[in-house]
């Protein structure tokens, strides 16, 4: 829902990294995005392509997105399952005593830079 504002956070961090590493141009940025991070990849890319133009060192930078599957663990039957399919209710034992193991990440993995 807040794709544009997270794009601004990404840009801030990349500018910091660029300064520290004497980067002249960022060619690509790779993000890792959890399936249930509440961020839509296509919308994120749209926002990126608009916002990057305002920053010289990344105006031609391509955003790559790696998906991280969402996995939930059931405290009662100790099994894991696909979050997106079953939500918070364990498909094995019906318990709601579950928590997300992975899938809400939003990480900057790496950049290719000159």
């Amino acid at each position: 829902m807040h794709e544009l504002s997270v794009v601004f956070h990404v840009i801030d961090q990349l500018e910091e990294v660029a300064k520290e590493n004497d980067v002249k141009e960022i060619k690509t940025v790779t993000l890792q995005l959890g399936e249930v991070s509440a961020v839509l990849p296509w919308y994120l890319t749209d926002c990126w392509n608009w916002a990057k133009k305002k920053h010289e060192i990344m105006q031609d930078c391509e955003m790559k997105i790696e998906k991280i599957d969402a996995v939930t663990f059931c405290e009662d039957c100790k099994q894991t399952y696909e979050t997106v399919k079953h939500g918070k209710t364990c498909p094995f034992c019906g318990s709601g005593n579950t928590f997300l193991v992975q899938g809400n990440e939003f990480m900057i993995k790496e950049i290719e830079a000159i």
Partner: peptide, 18 residues
Amino acid sequence: EREVRVLEIKKSVFENND
């Protein structure tokens, strides 16, 4: 001409805000 290099960042997008 400088080479393209890969810089690992591995940081949460929310880290600066935190």
